[in-house]
Simulated scan of single mutants.
Amino acid sequence: MRAAIMYEAGDVRVQDALDPVIEQSTDAVVRIVRSCVCGSDLHPYHTMSASDGPVPMGHEFLGVVEELGSEVSGFKRGDLVVSPFAFADNTCELCREGLHTSCPNGGFYAAGGVGGGQAEAVRVPQAQGTLVKLPVGEDSALLPSLLTLADVYGTGYHAAKQARVTRGDTVTVIGDGAVGLLAVLSAKQLGAERIILMGRHKDRTDLGRHFGATDVIPERGEEGIAKLRDLTAGQGSRAVLEAVGHMPAYEMAVGAVRPGGVISRVGVPQYEDAPIGFGSLFGPNITLTGGPAPVRAYIDELLPAVLDGAVEPGRVFDRTVSLDQVPEGYRAMDQREALKVFVTP
Rank of each mutant, 00 (worst) to 15 (best):
M1V: 09
M1H: 11
A4W: 04
M6F: 02
M6I: 15
M6E: 10
Y7W: 13
Y7Q: 02
A9P: 04
V12M: 05
V14H: 04
A17D: 13
P20A: 05
V21S: 13
R31W: 03
S40K: 02
P44F: 09
P44Y: 10
M48P: 09
A50F: 07
G53Q: 10
M57L: 15
M57N: 04
E60M: 12
F61I: 01
G63P: 15
V65Y: 10
E67F: 00
G69K: 07
S73K: 07
G74K: 09
R77N: 11
L80G: 03
L80Y: 04
V82N: 05
V82F: 06
A88T: 10
A88L: 07
C92K: 08
E93I: 02
E97A: 10
L99A: 00
L99K: 12
T101C: 03
S102K: 11
S102E: 13
C103R: 07
C103N: 06
F108R: 07
Y109F: 15
A110N: 07
A111P: 00
G113W: 09
G115W: 08
V122Q: 07
V122S: 13
V122A: 10
V122K: 08
Q126K: 09
Q126C: 09
G129M: 10
P135L: 13
V136D: 08
D139V: 01
S140M: 00
L142S: 02
L143P: 06
L143D: 00
S145R: 07
D151G: 04
V152H: 04
A160H: 04
K161F: 00
T166N: 06
G168S: 02
D169G: 00
T172V: 15
V184A: 13
S186L: 11
K188W: 01
G191H: 06
A192W: 00
E193T: 03
K202E: 12
L207F: 12
H210F: 00
I217T: 08
G221W: 06
E222G: 08
R229M: 02
D230C: 08
L231K: 13
Q235K: 12
S237V: 11
R238Q: 14
E242S: 02
A243D: 10
V244R: 01
M247N: 02
E251P: 04
E251M: 07
V254T: 13
A256E: 04
V257T: 10
V262T: 15
V262R: 14
V262A: 15
I263P: 08
R265M: 11
V266Y: 14
V268K: 14
Q270V: 04
E272C: 00
E272R: 08
A274H: 11
P275W: 14
G277L: 02
G279F: 14
T287N: 01
G290V: 01
G291H: 04
P292I: 05
V295D: 01
R296H: 07
D300Q: 12
L302S: 13
A305L: 13
A305D: 15
V311S: 00
F317G: 14
D318F: 12
R319E: 11
T320W: 14
T320H: 10
V321T: 06
P327L: 02
E328D: 15
E337R: 09
V343Q: 08
V343I: 15
T344L: 07
